[in-house]
């Protein structure tokens, strides 16, 4: 089997002296959805940030399309085709929806109108609210702005940190549908999710982390079927 499109391999590291990740490996294939789940404090978000370069690794590598990007800054990784949607503070609240999208495309020097139309097709509500300040939108709409902003760079990998935190179940389903649509356009998706059951349902690959290390790794379906995973992490 050839190497995955994006892989964070045997990552070890943390914010201070104490390591949070212990040889953790996360990978995603082209156009697939990979989901990281696990109990609170398992290092899910940390693993994601490590892949994005927001955390110094003491050991391990991150490779994108075969190229080692371990030493690159997050900004440089954006230029390489990675996009990241933080869990909170992920939009410019005082700017309009359209300006948010423009800022997402800040690094691009070509015409961004086509991409913007694609984002509006994916999230039609944003088009109707394009001149409204993003801070005035509802929680679900803000998440759409956040994802839309990240898509503006035309990334090859989209990384989402708990995109459904704090939104209603209906909105959550809708967001997951949109994420599947994004993946169908050939963009790899790596996301951390609190709502493990729903997330694993749409996942091609699932990673169950415990204490900064891989506990179970399999396809989403297989993990859902695994009795031990169900008992320990999916509430029966």
């Amino acid at each position: 089997m050839s190497e995955p499109f994006l892989i964070g391999e045997a990552m070890t590291g943390g914010y201070g002296a104490v390591d949070i990740l212990h040889g953790c490996t996360i990978a995603v294939e082209r156009g697939e959805i990979a989901v990281i789940v696990g109990p609170n404090g398992a290092g899910k978000s940390t693993a994601m940030k490590a892949v994005f370069g927001m955390l110094k690794l003491r050991a391990g590598h991150v490779r994108l399309d075969g190229e080692d990007i371990t030493q690159l800054s997050p900004q440089a990784r954006v230029a390489k085709g990675m996009a990241f949607v933080p869990q909170t503070h992920n939009i410019f609240t005082s700017m309009t929806v359209e300006e948010n999208l423009e800022m997402g495309a800040f690094l691009r020097r070509d015409d961004i109108r086509t991409t913007m139309e694609q984002v509006y097709e994916l999230f039609p509500i944003l088009k109707t609210k394009r001149y409204q300040a993003a801070g005035e939108l509802s929680g679900g709409q803000r998440q759409q702005v956040a994802v839309g902003r990240a898509l503006m760079t035309q990334p090859k990998v989209l990384m989402l940190d708990e995109p459904t935190a704090g939104v209603s179940p209906i909105v959550m389903d809708e967001l997951f549908d949109r994420i599947i649509e994004v993946a169908r356009t050939g963009i790899s998706i790596l996301m951390v999710e609190q709502n493990a059951r729903q997330a694993l349902e749409i996942a091609d690959k699932g990673y169950v982390l415990v204490q900064g290390a891989n506990r179970f790794t399999d396809t989403g379906k297989a993990l859902m079927a695994d009795p031990e995973v169900r008992r320990s992490f999916l509430g029966g």
Binding site: P74, Q75, V78, A79, F84, P86, H89, N90, I91, F92, M103, G104, F106, L107, R149, T153
Partner: peptide
């Protein structure tokens, strides 16, 4: 932070 993520 988000501005930095956007490459500003």
């Amino acid at each position: 932070d988000l501005a930095l993520l956007s490459g500003i």
